[in-house]
């Protein structure tokens, strides 16, 4: 069963701005799906329509087979939303935010408290249970929004840049938690500007630009489209000039760092061998930028042309 089906979805705002120009999208049940795009591409509009915060102009939206126009209340029960911006009353205590949210979904207060306690523990917020939301750090506020989105046990979780502004340690622990949620059966749609996040977590991906879906495939297939990768090599001795290596485009970044562009068909072992022959040993190596990021820029730049 499809978790989400979108057909010919259009949105034109009252100022005439066409945010969505008839997008089609399908997300399988159990998927961890990335919806990527530059700022203003239409990601947030799409999410707002799914969560009924924005009225669509036309098109069809079905969530787990239920039509948004016909079964709005049921669709709302299926979806949990972690929005981009903090959208809770900062003067309310953490526990009240969670219990109230459960109440809006018709969950009795006693059960709501039990669920809230469980989620606070899972997201490492138990100590802040009775604190006002304004006392929480940025990372804690993000985790609070995740807990709030999960309080009614949604089948489809929409994460709109859930780790924005969060330090690396918390981001990693949030990734771990999201993976666990997905493994437990929750379908997840993620929008993010950290493409490393999408590459690490997601199975399938759609790229949206200027209100149109320009790519919709699996992450693996998309990465296969990458024609070349740029690596940074840290070497064991100082060089003033680079030796000429046939077939490789090398660049000396500084005396002990080389940048190399490797074509998809080329083997990196061959490069290491050639470097060794010139008495250059590689101490460590890394991608210049995230692979998905390179591809993303390539696709978006291609669209501009």
């Amino acid at each position: 069963m499809k978790a989400l089906v979108i057909k010919n979805l259009k949105k034109t705002y009252s100022n005439g701005f066409e945010a969505l120009k008839g997008i089609d999208l399908e997300v399988e049940k159990g998927d961890f799906f990335a919806l990527l795009g530059p700022n203003g591409a239409g990601k947030s509009t799409t999410i707002s329509i799914l969560t009924s915060l924005t009225n669509k102009s036309s098109g069809l939206v079905k969530v787990f087979g239920k039509d948004l126009d016909i079964n709005l209340q049921e669709v709302k029960k299926y979806i949990g939303l972690v929005p981009q911006e903090f959208n809770f009353n900062i003067f309310e205590p953490v526990i009240e935010i969670l219990v109230n949210q459960a109440g809006y979904y018709g969950i009795p207060r006693k059960e709501a408290h039990e669920r809230a306690d469980f989620l606070l523990k899972e997201l490492d917020l138990t100590e802040k249970k009775h604190s006002q939301a304004l006392e929480l750090s940025g990372g804690m506020k993000r985790r609070l929004m995740i807990a709030r989105a999960l309080i009614h046990k949604p089948k489809l979780l929409i994460l709109d840049e859930p780790t924005a502004g969060v330090d690396i340690e918390i981001r990693r622990s949030m990734w771990k938690y999201m993976k666990k949620l997905n493994q437990d059966g929750t379908t997840i749609i993620l929008t993010t500007h950290y493409l490393e996040e999408a590459e690490n977590l997601c199975k399938n991906i759609a790229i949206i630009n200027k209100g149109e879906i320009i790519e919709n495939t699996s992450i693996k297939k998309l990465l296969n489209k990458l024609k070349h990768e740029i690596f940074i090599l840290d070497i064991d001795r100082e060089l003033d000039t680079l030796p000429k290596l046939n077939g490789y485009n090398l660049n000396l970044v500084d005396k002990t760092t080389i940048e190399v562009s490797i074509e998809k068909k080329e083997k990196i072992n061959d490069l290491f061998k050639l470097l060794s022959e010139h008495n250059i040993n590689v101490l460590s190596m890394r991608n210049k930028s995230n692979r998905l990021e390179e591809l993303f820029i390539e696709i978006i730049e291609g669209e501009k042309k």
Partner: peptide
């Protein structure tokens, strides 16, 4: 205030009639 802080969205995304 709920509109200003956007916490009204808590209600709007939920199935409260």
């Amino acid at each position: 205030q709920a509109k200003f802080s956007k916490s009204i969205e808590e209600m709007l995304v939920s199935p409260v009639p």
